[in-house]
Simulated scan of single mutants.
Amino acid sequence: MTSIVVLGSTNMDLVVYVPRAPALGETVTGRSFRTVPGGKGANQAVAAARAGGEVAMIGAVGADGFGTQLRATLEHCAVDTDLLRTSEGPSGTAHVVVDDEGGNAIVVVPGANGTVTSLTHGDEALIGTADTLLLQLELPLSVVVEGAVTARRLGVRTVLTPAPTQALPPELLAATDLLVPNEHEAAALTGLTDPREAAQALLRDVPEVVVTLGAAGSLYAVRGAEPVAVPAPRVRAVDTTGAGDTFVGALAVALGEGRPAPEALAWAQTAAALSVRREGASTSMPYRVEIEAAFRSPDSLEANAV
């Protein structure tokens, strides 16, 4: 079983479902409201655990009811929370608007996540036991850089999701093995709107890049070779929240198991396709048995597409 450590955020997602997202200054009436455990770090941890990985989480929750729920959710999904800190003050929250097409817009308030500014000795020791370290940018950048540098020193593969998008310092890029932006993040990082051109530009700084393209699939690029496009299964999207994190968590498991990159991407896209058919982020993420069944029979997914 592949071992994965996630250094990342935990948030409670406050999700409202609307026919369409409001324009600036506009008020619309929502259909329903839900609170769903999330955060890019926790989402990737849950996705990897459900996909069959052995997963541990480094981060922080607040000393509030949301913090209790977030920790309990991770533990219920078999994620090790021994090094998940409890910080005074509120947990992180994400305020999510989901429209009838399954699209979303999100505002994140860091809360306890903002207190994770450096690694402890225990954190470093845990990272050293892993095959892969998953990183995102919802924690302070200082600890993300420290985590990547520590993983590189200890021989642990690093996978970075550059979201929310910001300038990436050279020391972080130098310690990143695989960069996984979506097409909008790739464009923001490079100034190039064509995903192939953006991927090639990113390869100047990191050895491998996967650009996710939503319903169009993903693009895999490695130095010295032409990018490879991997199509995604066709499905009817209900809620795309957390689909990217589902993809990254499943991809980390597939790569850790030694699957070739194109197969690993296709397997991860199957997991993401399953997730968008359900509401919520962590609540929508599929289990390994579901991923394997759909991967073997993609027609079962496409039968429900419109």
Rank of each mutant, 00 (worst) to 15 (best):
T2M: 04
E279H: 15
E101Y: 01
S91E: 02
F247M: 04
L301K: 02
T117C: 05
S32H: 12
G258S: 08
V28I: 05
V238A: 09
P170A: 11
T93D: 01
L14I: 08
L70N: 01
P22S: 11
R157L: 11
G41C: 04
E75N: 07
T158K: 05
R223T: 14
S32E: 15
L24M: 15
A23Q: 14
A272V: 08
A49I: 13
D64Q: 07
P162R: 04
T176S: 05
A163V: 05
S284R: 01
E302L: 03
N113I: 11
G103F: 02
L189M: 07
T161M: 06
L83V: 09
R50F: 03
T161D: 01
A47T: 08
L202V: 00
A175V: 09
L83K: 11
A232E: 04
E263K: 04
A51G: 02
G62F: 03
G38M: 00
D205H: 07
V222Y: 14
P298S: 07
L255F: 02
R157Q: 13
V5G: 13
S282T: 09
H184E: 10
L126H: 04
H184K: 12
R204I: 06
N11R: 08
L160F: 01
G191W: 08
E290F: 15
R31V: 10
A94R: 10
E290H: 15
N304V: 15
V145W: 10
E185P: 13
L133C: 01
L189D: 10
L189H: 01
G92K: 04
L274M: 08
D123E: 04
P233R: 09
L126R: 12
L119N: 07
R20E: 00
A151Q: 06
E185M: 07
R20K: 13
S282D: 12
A125S: 01
G147R: 11
D100G: 08
P37I: 10
R153F: 13
V79A: 15
P260W: 08
S9K: 07
E197C: 00
H121P: 10
